[in-house]
Design a protein around this nucleic acid. Structure first.
Lengths: 134, 134
DNA sequence: CAGCATCCCCTGTGATACTG
DNA sequence: CAGTATCACAGGGGATGCTG
């Protein structure tokens, strides 16, 4: 295998690259938790379990569709549990799993960072815009 | 202003809601840093400053367009600095600011979480799919 | 109450090609 | 090397209406 055309080498590199991307857990999971709604849902559930309508109210701005979609993927990923109480009317509770709680710790830290450093970011933006705008 | 039609009341509520959303620093910043490319760029720059082409190579999968776009917004937000050295060929270095470094700490933690818990998430997914698929 | 189904638009994103 | 410009596309996400 000492001989290999440039095309073959390129193809090999590409194949390895693709495998790397698919195999790379970081990118996969990072993509999922780098989601607006994921952050908000996990943060909302961090203090205490909540019902569907509580979440809808607390997150304010989320459509039923996105809320459900987000909750389903998070349930699938073992981040939270979905508990249906078959009363009338139905009652559905969502709660973080231990896994979800460990993630919530980090996302809450990020959220706190955003709150604490908003001033600096805002100031930086104004400076930048002033120097740039025209 | 005791009299107000339903439409007016709705419009007022909407205006207040919009103002609330815009005023809320958490959502604004959270949205920005809850971005795939932001995470990757900040993580890439955390160990050491890098040049444009270094970033393009390290991140692998990002288009020039998205890379530039991401770098610009992060520069605007004071997360990183852009330094042009007018040699031939041109050389542009990107480095995290102290503000950016503090954020990098958190995002790196999230990245590590993703790496360390991928197995659990993956297992949860298989369990979920097995119970659900039909 | 807690959804699911459908429609549909619009923007973010990627590919490609060109420039200082 | 470090971008910018243009185009074309997919699909994210909202609105609406219906159900167990």
């Amino acid at each position: 295998m000492a001989t290999m055309t440039a095309a073959q080498r390129r193809e090999k590199a590409r194949a390895e690259y693709d495998a790397f991307i698919r195999a790379c857990p970081t990118n996969q999971l990072l993509d999922r938790i780098s989601d607006k709604w994921v952050s908000l849902v996990v943060a909302a559930l961090a203090p205490a379990p909540m019902r569907y309508s509580d979440l809808a109210r607390k997150i304010a701005g989320v459509s039923p569709k996105m809320l459900t979609q987000t909750l389903r993927t998070l349930e699938r990923d073992g981040i939270l549990t979905r508990t249906v109480t078959p009363s009338v009317p139905v009652r559905v509770d969502y709660a973080l799993t231990p896994l979800g709680s460990s993630l919530a710790l980090l996302l809450t830290a990020v959220k706190d960072w955003a709150e604490n450093h908003f001033d600096e970011v805002h100031a930086a933006r104004e400076r930048y815009d002033e120097e740039t705008d025209r």
